[in-house]
């Protein structure tokens, strides 16, 4: 991903809208005992599109905003979400993504890990309440929601960040890639132009 000022603004907008949608809309539902979480899905999608560094930085910033907006302990969400973004980016750097199932599985798995990570971190921070067995169901449900939400969210994020993606299909986008950093590695360029619109 080529990070220009315009792309940075787009990333910031995605983060703000995602956090607002999460705390003002998605957190108000509970299906089968769990709230759907779009924040880890969006961070994972950005990591999958932009790589480990972009994913980690965006995850950290998203966590900061989430903690500030909810007036909760600063640093907790940052730590979890930077891990989500980084791991998604590492996956992208190490594996081919050649179907829409891949991003959904990665997002679902990382959402599940994030939910479990939040609980573990809270326990380490001195919460002494007992843990119910129902928490396993809730964490699993969050993972399933993450998997399902990735199907609409990943293409949507990809669409918004399209000008930054190396060697996109549209010739109209190409001028954006010119310049010193516009020569991608051959392996990456093949992966970015895989059929089905999945990068």
């Amino acid at each position: 991903m080529i990070i220009t000022r315009q792309i940075s603004i787009r990333l910031a907008l995605i983060v703000v809208v995602c956090v607002l949608m999460q705390i003002s809309f998605f957190s108000h539902f509970a299906f089968l005992g769990a709230q759907p979480e779009i924040v880890p899905v969006v961070v994972a999608a950005i990591g999958l599109l932009g790589g480990a560094v972009t994913g980690g930085v965006v995850g950290f910033a998203t966590g900061l905003l989430l903690d500030a907006a909810l007036l909760q302990t600063m640093g907790v969400s940052s730590l979890i979400l930077l891990s989500v973004g980084y791991l998604a980016g590492r996956y992208r750097e190490g594996f081919e993504i050649d179907s829409s199932l891949g991003p959904a599985l990665v997002a679902g798995g990382l959402t599940l890990l994030a939910a479990a990570g939040f609980v573990a971190l809270q326990m380490m921070l001195g919460v002494e309440a007992q843990v119910s067995g129902l928490i396993v169901r809730e964490i699993l449900m969050k993972g399933i929601f993450g998997f399902l939400l990735a199907y609409p969210l990943y293409p949507l994020i990809r669409f918004f960040l399209r000008p930054a993606l190396v060697l996109e299909d549209s010739p109209a986008r190409r001028p954006l890639f010119r310049g010193r950093r516009s020569k991608p590695e051959p392996r990456r360029s093949r992966r970015m132009s895989t059929p089905g619109g999945v990068a």
Binding site: S24, S27, Q35, F118, V119, Q122, M123, V127, I139
Partner: peptide
């Protein structure tokens, strides 16, 4: 107006 989405919060 807002709710925390996390399991333990």
């Amino acid at each position: 107006i807002v709710r925390s989405p996390t399991v333990s919060n």
